[in-house]
């Protein structure tokens, strides 16, 4: 029987749920969120290279940077990111740039924002792509040459339903 009305009895509901889970599990191979950690390879060499280039031998200190990004991303296609650096943003003391780096994307440098005293605040918001669960870093460069960092691990969930539409 290809087409059949569904029953509403509890017994049928249980059966249907098991079938549903089996069926969905069948077409996505792994039926749990745990699969998000499956690709737990190393940090890309490109990430390390870009990070070294930005640092140029300078010490990177933790602090001053607030990286606002969800810990759990529903889709790697678009993850809202907001970064803010505490700074007076004066001619003498301001943030020159913020680099957004990914440890495991095919391209490590997601974005580089450039600011000046006329920016008012060292703050930017965008949406980023994440290939997999990983650490995202925001590195801020101040006008005195200082480097400050904030990092957040983002778990990227995988969708249950395929969609080639």
């Amino acid at each position: 029987m290809q087409q059949r009305k569904t029953s509403a009895t509890p017994r049928m509901l249980g059966l249907d749920r098991r079938r549903l889970i089996a069926a969905v599990g069948g077409f996505i191979a792994t039926p749990s969120i745990g699969a998000a950690w499956a690709e737990d390879g190393g940090v890309s060499g490109q990430y390390q290279k870009v990070r070294r280039e930005i640092a140029a031998g300078r010490e990177i200190r933790i602090g001053r940077v607030a990286l606002d990004i969800p810990r759990l991303a529903e889709s790697g296609n678009s993850v809202a990111l907001r970064v803010t650096v505490a700074s007076p943003m004066t001619e003498a003391d301001h943030v020159r740039a913020i680099h957004i780096l990914s440890e495991k994307n095919p391209v490590a440098l997601i974005a580089r924002f450039q600011f000046g005293p006329r920016s008012g605040r060292a703050e930017a918001q965008t949406n980023i792509r994440l290939a997999t669960t990983q650490l995202v870093h925001a590195l801020a460069e101040t006008s005195d040459g200082g480097l400050w960092e904030a990092s957040t691990e983002v778990v990227v969930l995988l969708a249950a339903c395929l969609d080639g539409s």
């Binding site: 957004i100 994307n105 391209v107 440098l109 997601i110 580089r112 006329r118 980023i128």
Partner: peptide
Amino acid sequence: VFRAELGPGIA
């Protein structure tokens, strides 16, 4: 007053 260099990691 603002500049952004973007990579393919931008949505």
